[in-house]
Nucleic acid binder design. Structure first.
Lengths: 254, 254
DNA sequence: AACACGGCGATTGTACACAATGAATGGTGG
DNA sequence: CCACCATTCATTGTGTACAATCGCCGTGTT
């Protein structure tokens, strides 16, 4: 209870201040950010009361935020047992990547058709922000911005269901990267993003799709999904110790 | 206030009665069913208090159910102004169908690979139920079961994100069909479903995909999406009357 | 000594009460 | 007579209290 995420900043939230449903979003965004930046490790229990106290809102709001996070797959909501940060298995990660390839291909093709000049400009801006984050060493922000780039691209594709799906996939992907990325720091694929924008702006759909698929290959080549690098399954983690002796008692909640 | 959907049946809910989170699901399922069977017309306001009284639960539960329905796109949740049954526009319908083609293609290919014999059998059973519903003249149940068939197929594909997305797409598709299906009653595409199962069981992926794409074509050829058949946008409805006179006052935010 | 059972504490699930927002309506002025 | 504005009412948004459920731990038994 000695760590405070943010003692409730009222969130500038430029512009649409009239919106009432903003409180949810604040909490949602902060938890989401914390998860991506690995300040909240996979498996961490998210107590409603504790979070409510931290953010200065009641459990009602927290509950809504958690529900939303659960729907996007970054939080696991166990009935009567509370919420925990999701820890996607290798199999789940593979499924997410499969779906992403599918969606990214379609989005890229659509974006070539429908992206406006303004959206192209916004995309370039996002790549700049992303590069800055990585050069500052802010890995969490970098991962997040990288995800937001793909989300922005989805918006340029102008297909509401795909945008919604992409949001969920990007969230989960970010979590997977945060969890499985192997040591070599070079996640910095922002130059691939730049090339992608160029191809889209040039209207070269085929090239854009190829670049995107390459980009996807790069991303999961950086992950070590081949073996469980970390697991919340205690038996898997300590399997090398387990001589079929007595199983002992479950070693407390880690 | 003179129509009661269900005066709170305790829902037999065979088996897992211990689960507490069940109440949400009951409300969710009932509203969902009512929308698909067009007992609730698009645009109908869904008052939290009224629904709570009908189902014998508090607004808390209703709110959760509505939130879930909103996330799937069959209910529109307007901040501070309550929930209404969604009335997808033609453009939205097109986007949903685009996404569905994408997803159904992938699902079909995966199902050919991963479907078990048991799942094939379940699929056949569902087609039977669907045929029965249509022959009974129960159009709403038919639409719903037809949707559930596609959902079951997604499960056979064994990709969690795709299943989740498909659920959302199928829900919206059902709503679109209920809203836009042109007069000719023959929505009964269950024989196409049967052929599809045969191809999948035979392991003929190419044929299965072709059948599925054909199936998609059939579905939206039955809809008249070419013109707005009915709209809740007053300006669109009466656009033929609107001479470019003075813009008057900003005509409320619809 | 190990297993099983039952009480206890903590956390979530639900309902309700109050506050805030938006829409409708009646009144007033031009 | 029409348009604008203030008040009122209904409905949603939020906070909080109570109840139900689950996991944990001590005790008793085999």
């Amino acid at each position: 209870m000695n760590e405070q995420l943010q003692p409730l900043k009222k969130q500038p939230r430029a512009g649409k201040a009239g919106r009432s449903g903003t409180q949810d979003d604040i909490v949602y965004a902060h938890i989401f950010e914390a998860i991506l930046e690995q300040r909240l490790a996979p498996g961490t229990k998210l107590s409603e009361e504790a979070l409510g106290e931290i953010f200065g809102v009641s459990r009602t709001i927290i509950r809504r935020a958690l529900s939303r996070l659960a729907h996007e797959g970054v939080v696991l909501l166990r009935p009567n047992r509370g919420a925990v940060v999701a820890s996607p298995s290798v199999e789940e990660a593979r499924q997410v990547f499969f779906a992403r390839r599918l969606v990214e291909r379609a989005i890229t093709e659509l974006a070539v058709e429908h992206a406006t000049a303004e959206q192209i400009a916004e995309l370039r801006q996002m790549v700049n922000d992303e590069r800055d984050s990585f050069s500052r060493g802010d890995r969490g922000a970098g991962i997040r911005l990288s995800g937001e780039f793909h989300l922005k691209l989805a918006e340029a594709a102008k297909n509401a269901p795909l945008i919604s799906f992409q949001r969920s996939l990007v969230s989960q992907t970010s979590l997977i990267i945060a969890q499985y990325e192997s040591g070599n720091r070079s996640h910095c694929s922002y130059d691939e993003h730049t090339q992608l924008i160029d191809a889209i702006e040039a209207g070269n759909g085929e090239l854009a799709v190829n670049l995107m698929m390459h980009h996807m290959d790069h991303i999961d080549s950086k992950l070590n999904l081949d073996e469980e690098s970390a697991s919340d399954d205690l038996h898997a983690v300590f399997s090398h110790l387990l001589q079929t002796k007595k199983p002992g008692r479950a070693p407390a909640k880690i």
